[in-house]
């Protein structure tokens, strides 16, 4: 994304840092720690020697093997979540130097090019912490259920071949299908905020990822069977109308999914759906 790099000063800064990174340096990791749900959090610092090409996860592995703070105190290993280590599963998402992103693809050279530079690691703030940097993203998946983000093909008999899909529709949907449910768009969204009470999940803001997935499955010829139900869910409290158009979601999405276009497209669908319902007297 050359245009994104050009427009985002933070990305330009990272590219410049990478060029000037010193070999054989030590970097300080300031980590926000928490021993479990409901426990208070505290900060701890670790000194980590960074080899060329190190990323946040490889440094966390170093800390796990040597759980000693900069003051020399022995502590518990820092806990984090990860899976693919190649920015496709979304599990390792955390807040790095104040911005949400995947830690597996976060290169230390981009952020801390000089000896003694500091990297700050925090768990995402919009989900409950399980431990340290590991959060519980259940609400993200729950919100995908709210819009029935799937194609209903379960049956007791062979349904035959699916409908023919146009290349244009495939093109639109391919981009949307790349969502890895990482939660970046939710962490950065001012309208999506921590909600620990599960009973309130259905009426609190659903988030850009779910709006975009509703679009993906409404555009799918078979998925469109559930179109009205998805639009009903988006019309309700906590649905698409609660988006405040801050457009942070699209800026932080690591998959460059056109989330704000999805929001506008579903805004249009909901407008029409609402008018139809009004005249049907529902």
């Amino acid at each position: 994304m050359s245009t994104a790099t050009k427009l985002d000063p933070a990305a330009a800064q990272r590219a410049a840092n990478r060029k000037s990174a010193k070999a054989g340096r030590t970097v300080i990791f300031r980590v926000k720690r928490c021993e479990g749900p409901g426990k208070p959090s505290r900060w701890e610092e670790f000194k980590v020697p960074v080899p060329p090409g190190a990323n946040v996860i490889s440094c966390l592995q170093h800390i796990a093997a040597n759980p000693v703070t900069t003051q020399g105190a022995r502590t518990t290993p820092v806990v984090w979540d990860s899976g693919c280590l190649e920015e496709v599963c979304g599990a390792c998402t955390m807040v790095i130097n104040g911005r949400v992103r995947q830690s597996c693809s976060a290169l230390i050279d981009d952020y801390a090019p000089q000896e003694g530079d500091v990297m700050v690691l925090e768990p995402m703030s919009k989900f409950p912490v399980v431990r340290d940097l590991w959060v519980d993203r259940s609400r993200l998946f729950h919100n995908l259920q709210r819009v029935k983000a799937w194609v209903p093909i379960d049956g007791t008999y062979d349904l035959g071949s699916g409908p023919i899909e146009s290349p244009a529709s495939q093109g639109t949907r391919y981009k949307l299908s790349e969502c890895m449910s990482c939660g970046c768009c939710l962490e950065a969204c001012p309208q999506f905020n921590l909600e620990e009470d599960k009973a309130a999940w259905d009426t609190s803001f659903i988030g850009a990822h779910a709006i975009s997935q509703a679009r993906l499955f409404n555009e799918h010829a078979t998925g469109a069977i559930l179109k009205d139900e998805r639009l009903d869910a988006l019309m309700g409290q906590g649905g698409i109308n609660d988006c405040g158009n801050a457009q942070n979601c699209v800026k932080v999405c690591p998959k460059h999914i056109p989330l704000t276009e999805s929001i506008a497209a579903m805004g249009r669908a909901v407008t029409i759906h609402g008018i139809k319902k009004f005249f049907r007297g529902e």
Partner: peptide
């Protein structure tokens, strides 16, 4: 909403 222009100082977020 809870504003977060401190961490995400994008133009759109400021307009929000």
């Amino acid at each position: 909403g809870i504003t977060n222009t401190g961490s995400y100082s994008f133009g759109g977020n400021w307009r929000y």
